[in-house]
Amino acid sequence: MTKNRVTLILLIVLLASSCSLSKANKGYRGAIVGNWILNDVTYKGNSGNFKSVLFNDVTDACFKGSQWFFRNSNSTGSYTINPGGECMEGTRNIRWSVNEKGDGVNQLQFKFIDEKRNDVSGGYGYRLDIVTLNEQQMTLQTNTSVEGEPITVVYNFSRSY
């Protein structure tokens, strides 16, 4: 009976530790939590002027100055597009997490949810590589292509208090 109990306890500990976040992942999550402003969106790796629709939502110009909020307790948050021009203003709710890519790169991933925290995108979401993350700044990027040519979209945030 004692041997079975020890085996059961070891199995529970092993299961609990396999489901927990790594120390690095917890650090990234903790650093992301809070309020951010998306200062600008830039493009690397290709020349020319770009006008793109980001996250299947609005153009890159509409994202400039957008306010982002990341809550830790239930991994939800939002971003708010400011009014102006062709921008469809308003708040979009998200569920977010940090993904360990496995090659030393961590990613911020998110998908859209409604007010009741239900997925509204059919499980589809977005992943952005975390390039810089500290108390004041966050730089994210994602690789894509334009007319078959590779390009990197860079998102520069600053902490908002």
Rank of each mutant, 00 (worst) to 15 (best):
Thr2Ala: 11
Val6Ser: 07
Thr7Glu: 13
Thr7Phe: 15
Leu8Cys: 10
Leu8Gln: 12
Leu8Trp: 14
Ile9Ala: 12
Leu11Ser: 14
Leu14Phe: 12
Leu15Cys: 11
Ser17Cys: 07
Ser18Leu: 13
Ser18Asn: 12
Cys19Asp: 02
Leu21Val: 04
Leu21Asn: 12
Leu21His: 10
Lys23Tyr: 15
Asn25Gln: 12
Lys26Glu: 05
Gly27Gln: 02
Tyr28Pro: 01
Tyr28Phe: 13
Ala31Tyr: 00
Ala31His: 00
Ile32Ser: 03
Ile32Tyr: 02
Val33Gly: 03
Gly34Ile: 02
Gly34Cys: 02
Asn35Lys: 15
Leu38Ser: 00
Val41Pro: 00
Thr42Lys: 11
Gly45Glu: 03
Gly45Pro: 10
Gly48His: 11
Gly48Asn: 10
Gly48Thr: 09
Phe50His: 12
Lys51Ser: 11
Ser52Asn: 09
Leu54Gln: 06
Asn56Met: 15
Asn56Pro: 02
Val58Thr: 11
Val58Leu: 00
Thr59Val: 07
Thr59Asp: 10
Thr59Trp: 03
Asp60Gln: 02
Ala61Met: 08
Lys64Trp: 04
Lys64Phe: 06
Gly65His: 05
Gly65Thr: 10
Gln67Leu: 14
Gln67Gly: 07
Phe69Ile: 13
Phe70His: 01
Arg71Trp: 03
Asn72Phe: 12
Asn72Tyr: 13
Ser73Met: 08
Asn74Glu: 10
Thr76Gln: 09
Thr76Phe: 08
Ser78Glu: 12
Tyr79Leu: 02
Asn82Gly: 10
Asn82Cys: 02
Asn82Lys: 14
Gly84His: 01
Gly85Lys: 08
Gly85Cys: 08
Gly90Tyr: 11
Gly90Pro: 13
Thr91Gln: 07
Asn93Arg: 11
Ile94Glu: 00
Ile94Trp: 03
Ile94Pro: 00
Ile94Phe: 04
Ile94Ser: 01
Val98Trp: 03
Asn99Trp: 15
Gly102Arg: 05
Asn106Leu: 14
Gln107Asn: 10
Gln107Ile: 03
Leu108Asn: 06
Asp114Tyr: 04
Glu115Asn: 12
Lys116Tyr: 08
Lys116Glu: 09
Asn118Thr: 06
Val120Ala: 03
Val120Gly: 00
Ser121Lys: 06
Ser121Asp: 09
Ser121His: 05
Gly122Gln: 03
Tyr124Ile: 06
Tyr126Glu: 02
Leu133Phe: 04
Leu133Tyr: 04
Asn134Ser: 04
Glu135Ala: 13
Glu135Arg: 13
Gln137Val: 00
Gln137Cys: 01
Gln137Met: 01
Met138Pro: 12
Thr139Pro: 08
Thr142Lys: 08
Asn143Lys: 12
Val146Arg: 07
Val146Glu: 14
Gly148Lys: 05
Gly148Gln: 09
Pro150His: 02
Ile151Gly: 03
Val154Ala: 05
Val154Asn: 06
Tyr155Met: 00
Tyr155Ala: 02
Tyr155Gly: 01
Ser158Tyr: 04
Ser158Arg: 15
Ser160Asp: 15
Ser160Tyr: 15
Tyr161Gln: 09
Tyr161Cys: 01
